[in-house]
Write a protein that binds this DNA or RNA. Sequence first.
DNA 1: CGTCTATTTGAATGTACTCAAAAGCGGTGG
DNA 2: CCACCGCTTTTGAGTACATTCAAATAGACG
Lengths: 193, 193
Amino acid sequence: MHELIHKNILKYIDANDEEFLFFTSKLEKLHLKKKEKLIVAGENCKHLAFVNSGCLRAFISDEQGTEHIIQFAVENYWISDLYGFLTGNPAIYTIEAIENTDVLKISRDSLEDVFRRYPKFERFFRLLIERSHVNLQQRIISSLSDSAEKKYLNLFEKQAFLISRIPQKYLASYLGITAESLSRIKKKMFKKE
Amino acid sequence: MHELIHKNILKYIDANDEEFLFFTSKLEKLHLKKKEKLIVAGENCKHLAFVNSGCLRAFISDEQGTEHIIQFAVENYWISDLYGFLTGNPAIYTIEAIENTDVLKISRDSLEDVFRRYPKFERFFRLLIERSHVNLQQRIISSLSDSAEKKYLNLFEKQAFLISRIPQKYLASYLGITAESLSRIKKKMFKKE
DNA sequence: CGTCTATTTGAATGTACTCAAAAGCGGTGG
DNA sequence: CCACCGCTTTTGAGTACATTCAAATAGACG
């Protein structure tokens, strides 16, 4: 049940069984059916979540009601509304299951307990956020400099596992373009080959 | 000389004089003239930098030679090529002074020394990166959902101090639009008022 | 004052958008 | 197993917004 998250943590820090058990004792299991929500924008976000199986999307809705996807999370990914989680303010994002999904979640308070008892976990989360930070920066670069077509190609090259798995309309939203545009881009790409 | 950075750190953690002195003993002072570079893309990035006075910009150049600004840093801001700093790989960004600028920088090794001796600094940097992370997410949301005009308005509302201080062409680059478009947006905004 | 760079303006172009409709696909119930 | 319904994807036509390229104006700095 905790194999995946165990491996995930060992990628970043050396935790022995005692430390790891203390950490996992703080985890809560949660199953989400397709379309069910982990976090709803405007509500409190007290947890970080680790995806054991399935797939989630984090998105916001703008004034026109258009959804904008910030992040996907498949197996072995962490996800949360970091803003709400860190500040205690209402969440900005809604996080919803694209498939039936199993997550493990940990509350802010529990995480602080872990940090106090085993400071090396502080390091773990720092590394986690650092990685995520680098990803975000690369996404901004792409959004600033790439055409829609290039953005899709990037997705193809770097995150192909998402393309086969996630409905196009969500991919389009993630790329910041309309579903129609994405459809046309694909058509154009196949013609070239 | 270290007042500003002292205050900056106290915003996040309680550090006593001994702890703070150990930290500052690791800092190196550096003065950059306008146009001089702190970090050059492709080279090693071994330092984090704190801006004591002046202003820097972090940017990348794409295949067409167009520059894209990722981040500005004025007094009291931290800046680095986080990717290079964290991974040891060549830096992605070039960081250049927009004005004559004084920075304090700390190497990765020194930072690790500080973390080992005083783990609370690990917390400090985690909080720093978390904050930065939230900012990046909000920037991605804006780049996905806002028109060029809205992006400029956001800048006006949330970071007005940048507008008065930074050349328009850099602001345009930061917003992901051309200098010509930004000029037209401003014109249009003034007509409305 | 003169030079160099930044900003503004104009005209033509292009990319992605909107709205509308058709086609495709998946799941459900008879 | 097939027929139907709802949702996703594709296609088409017209439009809007930002871009490019070029030139004029304004500003900064030695």
